[in-house]
Design a protein around this nucleic acid. Structure first.
Lengths: 131, 131
DNA sequence: ATAAGTGTATCAATGCACTGATACACATCG
DNA sequence: CGATGTGTATCAGTGCATTGATACACTTAT
């Protein structure tokens, strides 16, 4: 599957930084199955030109995605969607997810949200990320 | 119940703005039952002196709490804990949590976990983090 | 009325996050 | 090799959020 920069869009005055919008869209595409393991992201210059933004801005978004282990840098090629650690038992995968999910839940608690509200948010997000 | 400023503490170099820390602690105290309806918050000057911070910083934290309908301004007296947090503020808090939770869910999807597994993990963590 | 207690409007200073221009390192292809 | 393609290190500019100094409005108590 090839991804075209045209599938991305950015709203400069939304209050959300450009590079965050790029990160969110890439993650959403992975969650939604548009991007799969081994797919290449558009080059920083392609994406930058298309969005009317500086290449460095895209590069920083990609770097963050790499730091988050969502994507892998391939020398001379570009950024490739990482093989998820599909190997390993479900237990191990759950253990991988636990720190991040735990952080989100702690945050929810700090915000004074009830367990029901947190669960409702999870369900809602699970639905939204289907397509 | 009277609340003493000594019960508050602030970490200037934590990356979290002072006034946000104050807001979080007040909300946590309400959620935890330390602060109840009708209780008065420490005056801006008391709190400011105790924390080594400018009174305006505290005032802005209190103003945000008032905007969130968590607390009420009483003329000549101070800030008083309100009956209930309004629904609007809860929506704002849900919006605050959405990015982090979304990231966790994306990660779970990337690991090949099913929705049921993700939900199960959330429930488990909610139980563990009784706090 | 005066003093002492609330919170806050206003403006200035500072720091940091974001973005971008430039130049560079590295890989691939002809 | 040279040309073209990756991503990125570095530095500068800009805007906004955060904090603080000052002065003020208001209420209560003496």
């Amino acid at each position: 599957m090839t991804v075209h920069p045209q599938q991305f869009e950015v709203h400069p005055s939304s209050g959300v930084p450009i590079y965050v919008q790029v990160i969110d869209q890439v993650q959403a595409m992975i969650a939604g199955g548009i991007l799969k393991q081994g797919d290449m992201l558009p080059s920083v210059r392609q994406m930058a030109t298309e969005l009317g933004v500086n290449p460095m801005t895209i590069s920083k978004a990609y770097s963050k995605l790499e730091a988050d282990e969502v994507v892998e840098r391939v020398r001379g090629k570009g950024m490739q969607v990482r093989k998820m650690a599909a190997e390993g038992s479900q237990k191990e995968r759950l253990n991988d997810l636990t720190p991040l999910m735990g952080q989100a839940i702690v945050r929810g608690r700090q915000l004074g949200l009830t367990d029901a509200q947190i669960l409702a948010l999870v369900r809602q997000l699970l639905k939204e990320f289907i397509s």
